[in-house]
């Protein structure tokens, strides 16, 4: 099912949690909603579910307007951040509950529930109460309950945030596997960018209730359309250099100029740490710190107000206090206005 959000807004008293959001989520895709805490991710998801009614705009499932439809009638599946498994029911009863609410015959409902439990590999736990399950097992039960009615839309609100690092990794692959097996349109809320970038077809990046960028993960990383996106995505974070545009020419700190179609102004040039490298010419900076990050060596250069990070190549060594020249190729630099908007360099 295709989901279309048309200018939806949500106001609580004085705060605008979601502001004029418009986006189309293609059928059968897994889309992540990503953004810092409090940016309106859960609110957006709750509006998709029908638990909140937007204060403005409309929501379409395929071409049907569902803005005013109650959650009972939307036919979606949802996994909550804390799973919300009914504590007084067994695992089997939890999974059967949506079927029971839709008046399915008991024998048939049981058969379906067991099938679903097998899919998420918890069929050996059917008689347990949720309190006797581990976090990962509870999450699978929650997924099974959300999927048992074969909804056309699955919503997940930070389903992995309660799990330890290793389990998160396996569970997110699990979610991807199930999603692809069932070809179900899925919206996945997370504030973990690595999670979002690794499993999604598209990522919806939000900030302060506004849509910042809706794109495929690689574009979000390589072609951010706003400085916020550039800063939010990637770890270690983006490096920024001040530069000037004078008469259609961008004067880079790396010693070369680029033709650019923009009025005269001060801009910022963004370069990812892996695209910054030591050279014999370019920008001269002092090395402040050298540290090991996994298999790579990271050097921190610059002064207190403007630190930059770069990864050293194999065999390169630098000392703290040493002056070095850094360089970035012109196809790896991204230019942003002071207000944050991107300025594209034409080829």
């Amino acid at each position: 099912m295709t989901i279309t959000l048309h200018n939806i807004s949500m106001k609580f008293n004085n705060t605008t949690a979601v502001n004029q959001l418009s986006v189309t989520i293609p059928k059968g895709e897994l889309v992540s909603i990503l953004g810092p805490s409090g940016c309106g991710k859960s609110t957006t998801l709750f509006m998709l579910a029908g638990l909140y009614e937007p204060t403005g705009g409309s929501i379409l499932f395929n071409d049907k307007d569902v803005t005013k439809l109650t959650p009972e009638k939307r036919g979606i599946g949802m996994v909550f951040q804390n799973y919300a498994l009914y504590p007084h029911m067994t695992v089997l009863q939890n999974i059967m509950f949506p079927l029971k609410m839709h008046k399915m015959k008991k024998a048939e409902a049981k058969k379906k529930a067991i099938e679903m439990a097998k899919l998420v590999e918890i069929d050996h736990l059917l008689d347990r109460k949720p309190s006797m399950l581990s976090g990962g097992q509870q999450q699978r039960v929650a997924i099974a309950r959300a999927l048992v009615r074969e909804p056309e839309i699955l919503l997940l609100d930070e389903p992995l945030s309660n799990l330890d690092a290793r389990l998160r990794l396996t569970m997110r692959e699990e979610i991807r596997r199930i999603q692809q097996a069932l070809k179900i349109t899925t919206v996945f809320v997370t504030h973990d960018q690595e999670e979002a970038l690794s499993i999604s077809d598209h990522v919806l990046l939000m900030n302060q209730g506004k849509l910042m960028q809706f794109d495929v993960p690689s574009n979000l990383y390589d072609e951010p359309n706003h400085r916020f996106v550039a800063s939010f995505i990637g770890s270690p974070s983006m490096n920024y250099f001040d530069a000037e545009i004078v008469d259609g020419t961008l004067k880079t700190p790396f010693g070369y100029d680029l033709a650019i179609e923009a009025p005269n102004q001060s801009v910022q040039i963004a370069v990812r740490p892996e695209n910054l490298y030591l050279s014999t010419s370019g920008l001269k900076e002092e090395v402040r710190l050298v540290e090991r990050v996994g298999k790579d060596t990271l050097a921190v250069i610059g002064n207190d107000t403007a630190k930059k990070r770069l990864f050293l190549q194999k065999g390169e060594t630098v000392e703290v206090g040493q002056a070095v020249y850094v360089q970035a190729d012109k196809d790896t630099i991204r230019v942003f206005q002071k207000t944050g908007e991107r300025i594209y360099i034409k080829e």
């Binding site: 009972e72 909550f80 009914y86 504590p87 609410m101």
Partner: peptide, 24 residues
């Protein structure tokens, strides 16, 4: 969240009372 989950699962007001409120 239990009430929200029950609504998603298709429980009307009465069902939510019977299956969420009373047992809890």
């Amino acid at each position: 969240s239990y009430y929200n989950a029950a609504r998603i699962d298709g429980a009307n007001r009465w069902s939510r009372f019977i299956h969420v409120t009373l047992p809890q």
